[in-house]
Simulated assay, not measured.
Amino acid sequence: MHSSGDLLADRRYAYAEASFREGDLEAAADLARQTVEIAPRFAPAWFLLGEAREAQYRAARSTDEGVEAYREAVKAFEMALLRDPEDAQGARLRLASLGIGDPLEAMSPDYIRRLFDDYAVRFDRHLTVSLKYRAPEVLHEAVRRAASRGLRDFRFARALDLGCGTGLAGEVFRPVCGHLAGVDLSPAMVERARRKKVYDELAAGELVEWLSGRPDASADLVLATDVFVYVADLAPVFSEAARVLARGGLLGFTVQDHEGRGVVLGGDMRYAHAQEHILELAVEAGLRLLLSEAGAMREDRGQPVPGRVFVLGR
């Protein structure tokens, strides 16, 4: 639990959290206000106030009610960001969803790290059971078919798994990889992957930085399953992947798809990349398209999330 260092403020904050979970937005907002009055530097309470007021804004039944809730939500998220410049809770994302700031620069590494550190313990079961996650299997089949089209064996001496998480993709691809290395921003996720003994090499770090430290033409396969939903600008990723891939190597990945142009931040606080945009980036990086297919990789609230699997060749 977050702590402000003040027992009374912490108690108010705990009540506010409970009220928010139960859907009592008025009580959650009131208790969060009381918390920040006691502990004005406590970023989580400001963020919770923003969440409660944003929910009230979206459910407002009158213009005046909506405007008041919107203004307080924006102020609360701005205060949360002021108190936590590293933005571990994602205040920039929430502001972007309210039309404030650049959505393509809204997702901080600290937010992603904290999100998945907290998620690591229940990650596998929640994804595979609750969300019916199947990106690793979809990508495995796509890479197999792309390898066949490219007249190459479906075996890879050196493979890299970007945003490896707990190793769900690593488990699926391990039988066809000689040496398998993985990287993830979350140390807790990397530790979970390590326990599976699937990878020959693991690192906790930012994926472009990690790729940039690897030698030219040192990989035959680069994977990224459901990772690019947290990356707005894929150009540096494609550029580094093209550099580290040997001739004939493959870059396989999944994305959240949308029918418009470019990159958008969705209501689920994830990035969706249009197919045309992906193909433009591929050409710029010197990669060629081998396969592109639409399909849901997971569900959200029981509904399939539009997705697409790509395999690019070096």
Rank of each mutant, 00 (worst) to 15 (best):
Y57Q: 10
K132C: 07
V311T: 05
Y70D: 04
R11K: 04
S148Q: 15
R61P: 00
G66H: 09
M269T: 13
M297S: 07
L115Q: 12
V208L: 08
G266D: 04
P236N: 10
D184I: 11
L151W: 10
W210V: 06
A76P: 05
F154N: 12
E299S: 12
R270K: 14
E209N: 10
T225N: 09
L223E: 03
L251M: 13
R261I: 01
V237Q: 04
K197D: 13
L291R: 07
G99P: 01
E171P: 04
H2D: 14
D110F: 14
T128V: 15
H2P: 01
G182P: 02
Q56C: 09
D64N: 03
R195W: 03
L93N: 05
Q89F: 09
V227E: 11
I38F: 00
A204S: 15
R71T: 03
P136V: 08
Y199V: 03
V190I: 06
K132L: 12
A80R: 06
G178N: 11
Y119F: 14
D226K: 08
G260P: 00
L245A: 08
R83I: 00
T128G: 08
S186I: 07
E284Y: 03
A106E: 05
A241F: 02
D200C: 12
R152V: 15
L31Y: 09
A159P: 02
D184A: 06
A32E: 08
R125C: 02
F42Q: 08
L207N: 09
A88I: 10
R61D: 12
P103H: 07
A88K: 11
A73G: 05
R174N: 11
R195C: 02
P306Q: 08
R155W: 13
E259L: 10
H179E: 05
S292A: 15
A27D: 12
A88G: 15
L290W: 06
E141T: 10
E206K: 12
F77W: 01
L251P: 01
L139R: 10
H140T: 09
L25M: 05
D24W: 02
F253Y: 11
A203L: 01
R270T: 09
R261M: 00
V305K: 12
T225Q: 07
Y271N: 04
E259C: 07
D268K: 07
R12Y: 12
S108I: 04
V264L: 13
R243K: 06
A204I: 01
A217V: 03
L250T: 05
P236Y: 06
A296R: 07
G266V: 01
V231N: 14
L151Q: 13
S3G: 07
S239L: 05
A235S: 13
D118T: 06
H273A: 09
P44T: 03
